[in-house]
Each structure stands twice: as structure tokens, then as C-alpha cells.
Nucleic acid binder design. Structure first.
Lengths: 213, 213
DNA sequence: TGGTACGTGTACCGTATGGTACATGCCTGT
DNA sequence: ACAGGCATGTACCATACGGTACACGTACCA
């Protein structure tokens, strides 16, 4: 099979790039890092951009694979499902690939050639998936879509937080606060929020922080 | 004043980099783009990395400036405060700088020299600020911190969504779903979520989407 | 009027890059 | 045994890069 060694190279390349970043990537350094020559990378992938396209595709694929089995056997509550997803994604073993994901996301937003394909289904694919799941629970499609979108933002936002701060406990607590939203029946009125225990049910309110300018 | 022309150069550089991305930045292209020579950039900033450090600092500063006035005059409810923040940040005029922010975020996660300073207060600075605000509303510090963190994640996650999809209506709706969390008194039980109107009060539940693998 | 600091242009240097040309193994099917 | 394709090493190319050396102008201050 002609593509066998190519696949091995690609896997090694993704792993290396996850470690070192894609920003200052050079074919020669990459080749040296995975035990080949830059000549071979050009041979198998045609060009640097050709390689990048395949790396992006591999990252997308890994993204889906990381949660594919989780979605199926979530016999428990919504709360448990969210917890399971977060537990899986917050695993430090995945951090290098998640850093790479966000780095590629940033480059794709700036239209770096080869990376823009990452944006195609970066939201909608997950929404479709989650809406399907939500509808099984009896949530109407339009409402489900909003909350799927919100949940996706929460997970990604907290992952960004976790990768920057390393504060697993703090982000875990924020996830619990989000989960509480879906399982508590007691919410405080808008202007006089009621205090709650960090991992208990119900919560007080206060507003969100900014992100950028 | 020695630094006057330097400041002009820096402002022009930030604006140019926001347009073209920081990934493939070269002093020569940047210089050509803002009407100077790469010689001048070295002269004023010492090195490419020196320039990058200042750009990062400028981006941080702009981040704070974008919301500085908003936080003070939020006479309204928490809901209105969140809405005001989102309205401000979702403005398409800010998108180029927000793209740059996320691109730099990604590079900082990969420890690109000159960018790592961005991570220092990228979460905690905003948390401190919002916790202070939350406490004025009577929320205990530990709970306030969780929800400030959650709100920050929501805003950043939805901004990431908005920049990738351009779907203002969809992200607006997700913000409203989040706001509803803080103003409704009727929440459905965990296992039988009740449907709601997109911008109404109360909501059904369904779980979050994944972000990365 | 002279000097001194700021600013700028030109030309150059060493280096690393992506990509190519060409030769040469190696392994398999006949 | 040999032919053909996959794989690989060596050597090279043109280009662009960050950074430096040096000369020159210009404006302000004594």
C-alpha cells in the first residue's frame, strides 16, 4: 500500500505539531523531529500547505473521535452527560491537541491557507448532533439549538480558560454552576440573587466578563 | 518627544496585523503595509519579538478599554448588563481585533515568544473585576467567582462561534438562553425539561456540545 | 554656529526556508 | 533475472527573512 508510510508520517506530524505549535512550523524541523527528511514530507504531501490541510483534517477527526463513544451510552441525566463530556475533554492528556485545535482555530479565523476548512463545521456539525440528542429528550428544535449552541460555547470557553490557567478546580466549579442551571428548580429573582453552595443546587447571579476589544 | 512617532507606528502595526494576521508576520511586509521600512521597525522596537510584545500589550489594553465604560453605568438588571456587554463585543467593527485576540491566544498557548504575557491575566483579571461587581449585588465571593468564570466562558465561546460562523442571530439567541438562566424562576426537573420560547423565560434542557479532542 | 540626538535610506550579511533535480536503493511480481 | 514503481539521500536553487553597518539629513539647543 502506497499510503501506509504516509499515514504513519501524518500521525507523527500531528503529534509533533501538537507539541511544538503550528505557528513557526518548518518542514525541516518537523522532519528532524519525527525522524525523516523534509524531502519526504514534500514527497508525500506535495507541499507544506498540503501537509497542513491533512493535519487540519486529522485534528477535526480526532475531535469527533474523542466524544463519539460518549454520546451513545449516556444513560444518565443531562447533568451527568455534561459532566462526562467535560471530564473527558479536561483530561490533561488531551491538552496538547486542544492547544493545537485552538491555535489552528485562530489561524483559520485569519484565513491562513490550508486551515480554513476547519471552520466549516466547527459549530454547526456539533449543533446538529446535539439538537438530535436534545430532541430525543422532547426539546423543540429551535430551543434545543439555542441551548446546544450555549453549551458548546461554555465547553469551549472553559477549555480556553483551563488551557490558559491550568485551574482544573476552578473550571470544574464553573461547569457545575452551568449544570446547576439545568437541574435546579429554585432560581433567585433578577435583582436579589440568592447565595448557593459551590457544588450544590440553585445559584445566585452576577454578570459575565468581557472577552476582547 | 522621542516616542511619538513610535506610538503612531505601533497603532498602525496593530491595525495592520489585525487585518492580516500575526502568524505569517514579516517586518518587511508589515513595514510596506503601513508606509515605513523594516529598518524603522527594528529601530523603534529593537526586534521583531520586541514589536510583538508591544502589540500584545496594545491588544490587552484595547480589550479592557472596550468594556471599561460599560461596567460602570449598568443601572439595569443583570440581564441588561450581559446584553450590553454582548452587544458591544459582537459589533462587527471589532471583529478584526477579536480575531487577532484569539489568534494571539492560540499562539500564547503554544508559548510563542513575546505572546505569553497575554495569558497572565486573561482569566483572573476579569474574574476579579466581575466578582467585585457581583459582590455589590450580595453574591458571596466563592459563588460569584464560579459564575463570573462561567459568564466569561460563555462570552468568549460565543464570540469564537460568531467569528467562525458570522451567525449573529444564532449567537444572540444563545446569549438570551444564557440570560434566561438568571432571570427565570421556573426550571424544569432534570429528566423532563420543559420547552420554552426562544427569548422567553424558563427553558428546557439538553446537553452541551464538545469542543475538541 | 556648531553640536547632539532623533530619524531615515541604502546596502549588505548570514541563515533558514520551501521546493526541485537527479541518482539510487529496495522490494515485488513475472 | 529483471523491470517498474515506491521510497529515500544528496545536493542544489532562488527567495525572503531578521538584523546590522554606515552614511546622511534635519531640527533643536547652547
Amino acid at each position: 500500500m502506497p499510503v501506509e508510510s504516509r499515514d504513519r508520517l501524518l500521525a507523527a506530524a500531528v503529534e509533533f505539531i501538537a507539541r511544538t505549535g503550528v505557528g513557526d512550523l518548518s518542514l525541516r524541523r518537523l522532519a528532524a523531529g519525527i525522524g525523516t527528511s523534509h524531502r519526504m514530507l514534500i514527497y508525500h504531501f506535495g507541499s507544506k500547505e498540503g501537509l497542513l490541510v491533512e493535519v487540519v483534517r486529522a485534528v477535526e477527526e480526532r475531535q469527533r473521535a474523542a466524544l463519539a463513544d460518549l454520546h451513545l451510552d449516556h444513560g444518565g441525566s443531562i447533568a451527568e452527560t455534561i459532566r462526562a463530556i467535560w471530564r473527558r475533554l479536561a483530561d490533561p492528556a488531551l491538552w496538547p491537541h486542544e492547544r493545537l485545535f485552538f491555535e489552528l482555530y485562530g489561524q483559520a479565523l485569519q484565513k491562513r491557507p490550508g486551515t480554513t476548512g476547519l471552520l466549516d463545521g466547527i459549530v454547526d456539525d456539533w449543533l446538529d448532533l446535539n439538537v438530535t440528542l436534545a430532541e430525543r429528550l422532547g426539546v423543540p428544535a429551535d430551543t434545543a439549538r439555542q441551548h446546544a449552541r450555549l453549551g458548546l460555547a461554555v465547553i469551549r470557553g472553559l477549555l480556553l480558560d483551563l488551557l490558559a490557567t491550568g485551574d482544573r478546580a476552578g473550571t470544574d466549579a464553573a461547569v457545575e454552576a452551568f449544570i446547576a442551571t439545568y437541574e435546579t428548580g429554585t432560581h433567585a429573582p433578577t435583582d436579589t440573587p440568592a447565595p448557593v453552595r459551590p457544588s450544590g443546587r440553585g445559584h445566585g447571579g452576577e454578570e459575565a466578563g468581557p472577552a476582547d476589544g
